[in-house]
Computed example of a mutant assay.
Amino acid sequence: MTGGASSAIRVAVAHFPSTTAAVPRVRRSTVHMLTTWSVDPDAVSVAEVVVCELASNAAKASHPDDVMAIRLTATSGSILIEVWDSNDAGPRITDPDTDSEDGRGLLMVGALSSRWSWYRAKTQGKVVWAEISSGLVPEPAAMVTAMPTRTPTVGPEPTEPIAYRTDPETLRRVADALRGLDRWHRPRPPESVAHRISVRT
């Protein structure tokens, strides 16, 4: 590790009732968590707007008795906001009228984030995600712990030619498919769904 860059990854998951009334709690929870992680203040402000838009869309797409889940992942280079709801239908970008108050959420998300997309969860529902550039404030060099390294081993030679695809669209589809296997959005039954946060570092 050089230049004082942090190798830390912070992950938190929170569950909320799937109602528009819960959106302010989603906003406060997100701001509190990112601020606790020492995320760049400008990035926190952007994340605050993005998570509100995604949570509002999730609430509108869901039954009031459902749950929506928010996962935040912060690194030194980005913040990833993921919002799960139980509706399998993909998000739709509309072209709102000039005087319309609705329909601008995803347009705003697209304008504020470096990229956004969505994927279907393996169990049920979908996850809409947005990535914001910037992230954790770098730790002082003295606090950075070097990551352990492993010695590479030689594996067997392939029996058939291997074709590698590294175009962004293919990599995005693979990443979304892998994310869809993770059941992070499902709350643990013994705990209240009203508002649960779990944090990993």
Rank of each mutant, 00 (worst) to 15 (best):
T2N: 11
G4Q: 05
S6Q: 03
S7W: 05
A8P: 00
R10Q: 08
A12V: 03
H15K: 00
H15S: 06
H15T: 07
T19S: 04
T19N: 02
T20A: 08
R27E: 11
R28W: 06
T35H: 05
T35S: 10
T36V: 04
S38V: 04
P41R: 05
V44D: 03
V44F: 00
V44G: 00
V46H: 03
V49S: 09
V50G: 02
V50R: 00
V51R: 02
V51H: 01
C52L: 00
C52N: 07
E53K: 04
A55V: 01
A58E: 05
A58Y: 01
A61D: 07
S62Y: 00
D65V: 09
M68R: 05
A69I: 03
A69C: 02
I70Y: 02
R71L: 04
L72A: 02
L72Q: 02
A74W: 01
T75P: 00
L80P: 00
I81P: 01
E82V: 01
V83K: 01
D85W: 01
S86R: 09
G90A: 13
R92N: 05
D95W: 09
D95V: 10
P96T: 04
T98L: 14
T98R: 14
E101G: 08
D102N: 09
L106R: 06
L107I: 13
V109Y: 03
V109R: 04
A111W: 02
A111L: 10
S113V: 05
R115L: 11
R115Y: 12
R115V: 12
R120T: 10
A121M: 09
A121W: 04
Q124G: 01
K126C: 11
A130Y: 04
E131R: 13
P138G: 06
P140R: 04
A141L: 11
M143Q: 15
T145Q: 14
P148A: 06
T151G: 01
T153N: 07
V154C: 08
P158F: 08
P161G: 07
A163T: 15
R165D: 14
R165S: 12
E169T: 14
E169Y: 12
R172G: 08
A175Y: 10
L178H: 12
R179T: 09
L181H: 10
R183H: 14
W184F: 09
R186T: 14
P189I: 08
E191I: 15
V193T: 15
V193M: 12
A194H: 15
R196W: 13
I197T: 15
V199I: 15
